[in-house]
């Protein structure tokens, strides 16, 4: 009970921290805390495999990607070069709409409460976290992933492949960058200096 509220406070606080920092590196740190707390929350919901991949993939892979990009683009501590703010007054309507939508969502949830979670019963399918072959365990998840959900699983592989190709196309050097003008036209073969000069007679 208290664990949930503790994690909830950490989640909300780290989320707000993430979106309010000037420097993206601090945001990454906030996001890391957020993800770790979320992983813990997953464990309380019997989703142990998801808790693990939340740490491994999100914290380990995706956040590292962010950090790499930040390192690539700037020193990582200062603000990015920013141009003029073209929508200076967007914050007020955005926050207002956000609050309204949030209010309606909470209102809708409150209309039909779900009630308490079903209790843990060690003898049933719902077992303790860490037990193999109970709901949410690695065994349970794996069986589902490779039997009934095999097609979506294969599709994820396809999505990742498309993403890889897309990234290479967008950020790779293969595409000429006209505004930077780094690629000077190569001299034609006839204009190139011969590698071996014929010895003078």
């Amino acid at each position: 009970m208290s664990l949930f509220y503790l994690l909830a406070v950490i989640l909300i606080a780290s989320a707000i921290f993430t979106i309010t920092q000037k420097s993206p590196v601090y945001s990454v740190v906030g996001l890391l805390v957020n993800f770790l707390a979320l992983a813990a929350l997953y464990f309380t919901l019997n989703a142990e495999f998801l808790g693990v991949i939340q740490i491994v993939i999100y914290s380990g892979a995706i956040l590292m990607l962010f950090v790499f990009v930040i390192a690539l683009l700037s020193s990582g501590v200062g603000p990015f070069r920013a141009g003029p703010n073209r929508l200076p007054r967007i914050a007020a309507p955005a926050l207002l709409t956000t609050l309204v939508a949030f209010g309606f969502l909470i209102f809708g949830i409150a209309q039909r409460p779900f009630g308490p979670l079903p209790p843990h019963r060690p003898t049933s399918f719902l077992g303790n976290v860490g037990d193999p072959n109970v709901f949410g365990s690695v065994g349970d998840f794996g069986v589902a992933l490779f039997t009934v959900q095999l097609l979506p699983f294969e599709v994820t592989a396809f999505i990742l492949m498309v993403a890889v190709i897309g990234v290479v196309l967008i950020a790779g050097d293969a595409v000429p960058q006209p505004t930077l003008g780094r690629h000077r036209p190569q001299k034609r073969a006839a204009e190139r200096e011969p590698i071996l000069k014929a010895p003078a007679p």
Partner: peptide, 12 residues
Amino acid sequence: SVDVTNYIALSA
């Protein structure tokens, strides 16, 4: 046990 509604609200 915590009410699921709390999780949903936190998610929102």
